[in-house]
Amino acid sequence: MEKNVFIVDEKDRGERIDKYLAEIFVDKSRSFIQGLIEKDGIKVNNKTPKSNYKLRALDEIEVTFSEPEVLKVEAEEIPINILYEDKDVVVVNKSQGMVVHPAPGNYNGTLVNALLYHCKDLSSINGIIRPGIVHRIDKDTSGVLVVAKNDEAHNKLSDQLKDHSMKREYYALVEGRLKNDKGIIDKPLARNKRDRLKIGIVEGGKRAVTHYEVLERFNGYTLIKCILETGRTHQIRVHMASIGFPLVGDPLYGFKKQRFKLKGQVLHAKTLGFVHPSKNEYMEFTTELPEYFQEIIEKLRNEVR
């Protein structure tokens, strides 16, 4: 365990604490600092501050870095579709039905278990349960995600998520025929207090912005492309349901009566683009829709003809 203590100078008065510490610890991102605050690893005058706390002259800041825990999640020989890999990142096309990382009661069969078998070295920033995981997609959502193999790569990728420069495009099939060809949904999201499994539109929640574009209309359904400006849990699913066009097959936010027998929502993370953390070059990966998704679209197209 490593402790660092700082006394704030007059010249730094009014600076946000996460920005201030990210400039001191140059190998740590602001998102990492914010995570450390949430874990009570940072104290100001012996109290845990908020990430947006404005410093005062003579504030005493104590920063504690814990030793990385030994990873207890087991490596498993599970086939995964790797689109790209080098010393810094792994880009994976996750299949529908695969959980991204272990959680209490579900420590096996996840993408993390498969990655640990495949590459051994993953960043430690998210702890023993989520090594290397920069961003997630739901169990029943398929598609592209990038995994960090070291802490420096993780920090740089996290910063791109935070400043919205990482490109994330999803294809979704929604119930009903959308009239507008394009739209923006800007509604705050937070955990539903009555049902902890659900996310809801909550005043005072975290800002969430989804851009959508109609790709194709069918009898009673619409194929859309969604571009995420933010990346909140269940964002596309909740946003589309909030305007009356829930995703087909969605067990939480969708219609109770479903025409197609599905394992979950018809949602695919089709394109992912980011600046490589060490090469500093823009990279983009695009995947085909999974077979079940294509079959539904083809069936709907045949009904229109």
Rank of each mutant, 00 (worst) to 15 (best):
D9S: 09
E10M: 03
D12L: 10
D12V: 11
R13E: 08
K19D: 03
Y20H: 11
I24Q: 09
F25N: 07
S31T: 15
G35P: 14
G35M: 15
G35K: 15
I37E: 01
E38A: 15
I42D: 00
V44L: 09
N46I: 03
N46L: 09
S51G: 04
N52I: 08
K54T: 02
R56G: 02
D59Y: 01
I61G: 01
V63F: 15
V63L: 13
E67A: 07
P68C: 05
L71Q: 10
A75H: 13
E76H: 08
I78V: 11
I80Y: 00
I82P: 02
L83E: 10
Y84A: 14
Y84S: 13
D88S: 07
V90R: 13
V91F: 11
V91H: 14
S95M: 12
M98T: 14
M98G: 12
H101G: 12
G105K: 03
G105N: 00
N106M: 14
Y107C: 03
G109A: 13
T110H: 09
A114M: 12
A114E: 05
L116G: 11
L116P: 10
C119Y: 05
D121Q: 13
I125K: 06
I128R: 08
P131A: 11
H135F: 07
R136G: 04
G143W: 10
L145T: 01
A153G: 15
S158Y: 02
D159H: 13
Q160I: 14
Q160M: 15
L161F: 15
D163T: 00
H164D: 02
H164I: 08
S165W: 13
M166T: 11
K167L: 15
K167V: 13
E175Y: 09
G176E: 02
G176Y: 01
R177P: 08
L178Q: 02
D181W: 06
K187C: 00
L189Y: 13
N192C: 10
N192R: 10
K193Q: 00
K198I: 12
G200F: 06
I201D: 05
I201G: 00
E203Q: 13
R207N: 09
R207H: 09
V209R: 01
V209L: 05
T210L: 03
Y212T: 01
Y212I: 07
E213L: 03
L215P: 00
E216N: 04
G220H: 06
G220L: 04
C226N: 04
C226Y: 11
L228H: 00
H234M: 10
Q235F: 09
Q235C: 05
I236F: 05
I236C: 10
R237F: 01
R237H: 02
F245T: 02
V248K: 05
Y253C: 00
F255H: 10
K256S: 01
Q258K: 10
F260E: 08
K261H: 07
L262G: 10
A269C: 14
M283Q: 14
F285M: 14
T286Y: 05
Y292S: 03
Q294I: 03
N302R: 11
E303T: 05
R305I: 00
R305E: 05
R305H: 08
